Simulated assay, not measured.
Amino acid sequence: MTQTTITSLRGLMWSANLPFSSLPPIEDITDQLPKHATKIWGWRKYNEVKRLVVHHMASEAPLVNQADYHVNSHNWPGIAYNLVVSNGRLLQTNDLLTYTTHAKGANDDSIGIAIHGDLSKREMTSQERELLYAGILLVKSIWPKIAVVGHNEVSATACPCTSMNRIRTDIANLEHQMEFAATPQKQAEMAYRIANELLYLYNLSKGTDQYGKPVESERAEKAQRRLLQLEPEMRRLGFLA
């Protein structure tokens, strides 16, 4: 199936090359949130999506409250965001191809990603920023040319109450890092670093440092423990019988 014939984008998973050490699985809670009794969101085609709009929710209340507000106060089909960074997770709250009313003036061609919090009263946490960036990079892996904009750049609002210039600069740097990591030069450098670190730990476990000088027993035992921590993964990859 080609990109232009994609009809649904649910059950998202992280790309393997994201430059983050550990990300919790994306949780799709689309069907768990309050919905309008009769209304449903519309749909767009893959090639109609042009922008990713960054929001903050202006509230620290539970996410279900925000969904209730969108349904009962705005009379919308459900919560308007497609992705939400909340409580240390990236949550999918709508199919990425659904048409929702999250950003006046940009709804036709945009996806909405929101920080669950009030950034007018506090800074984004480092964990929220990492998950936001991971979510943006995930969307960009699906739509490589998508524009990343703030809600305030398409509508008359202060949302998302954080610097979009910083977000775009950080994303560009991360993309450069990912691109460089995929080059033969970087791969060779990484292979050397891995081999060098393994040799260093092995020598330490045998009682000598990188200069051939004796090390204390505690340091040697720690090096051996670190090497042995690799055993399950080495077996999984077929390096150990």
Rank of each mutant, 00 (worst) to 15 (best):
Asp28Asn: 07
Trp76Asp: 14
Trp143Gly: 11
Tyr211Gly: 05
Ala61Phe: 00
Gln66Gly: 04
Tyr46Asp: 06
Ala134Thr: 07
Ala156Glu: 14
Ala191His: 07
Lys140Trp: 00
Asn82Met: 01
Gln32Pro: 00
Gly150Asn: 06
Ser15Tyr: 06
Gln185Ala: 11
Gly88Ser: 06
Lys206Ile: 08
Thr93His: 05
Lys145Tyr: 04
Pro62Ala: 13
Val139Pro: 00
Asn17Cys: 04
Ser155Gly: 05
Val148Gln: 10
Asp95Phe: 04
Pro160Asn: 14
Leu230Val: 00
Ala61Gly: 00
Lys145Val: 03
Lys206Gln: 15
Met234Asn: 06
Gln229His: 11
Tyr133Cys: 04
Leu230Trp: 10
Arg10Leu: 02
Ala114Pro: 09
Trp43Ser: 03
Leu96Glu: 06
Gly135Arg: 14
Leu204Cys: 11
Leu83Lys: 08
Glu27Gln: 14
Ser155Asp: 15
Arg129Tyr: 07
Pro19Gly: 05
Glu197Asp: 09
Leu240Tyr: 04
Val71Arg: 01
Gln187Gly: 01
Lys50Ala: 04
Thr93Trp: 03
His102Ile: 01
Ser141Cys: 04
Trp143Leu: 09
Gly150Tyr: 01
Glu231Thr: 12
Met190Ala: 09
Arg236Asn: 14
Leu97Ala: 03
Pro34Ser: 01
Arg235Phe: 04
Met13Gln: 15
Asp68Leu: 07
Ser8Glu: 15
His70Pro: 01
Ser126Asp: 11
Trp43Gln: 11
Asp170Ala: 06
Leu199Lys: 14
Lys222Gln: 13
Arg236Gln: 14
Ile142Gln: 05
Leu198Lys: 11
Val54Ile: 15
Met57Ser: 15
Val148Ile: 15
Glu218His: 07
Arg193Thr: 02
Phe239Lys: 12
Ala58Lys: 14
Asp108Ser: 13
Leu97His: 06
Asp109Val: 10
Arg129Leu: 09
Asn107Pro: 14
Leu137Pro: 02
Arg225Ala: 14
Ile194Met: 06
Met164Val: 01
Ser110Gly: 08
Gly112Asp: 06
Tyr99Ala: 07
Met1Asp: 10
Thr169Lys: 13
Arg226Glu: 15
Arg235Ala: 02
Arg44Gly: 03
Lys39Cys: 03
Ser15Ala: 13
Thr183Tyr: 06
His70Leu: 01
Thr125Ser: 15
Lys121Cys: 02
Ala181Val: 02
Leu240Trp: 03
Lys121Asn: 07
Ala58Gln: 13
His74Ser: 02
Lys206Asp: 05
Glu218Cys: 02
Asn17Asp: 15
Arg193Tyr: 07
Gly11Val: 00
Arg51Met: 08
Asp109Tyr: 10
Arg166Thr: 13
Ala241Gly: 05
Thr208Cys: 02
Ala61Asp: 08
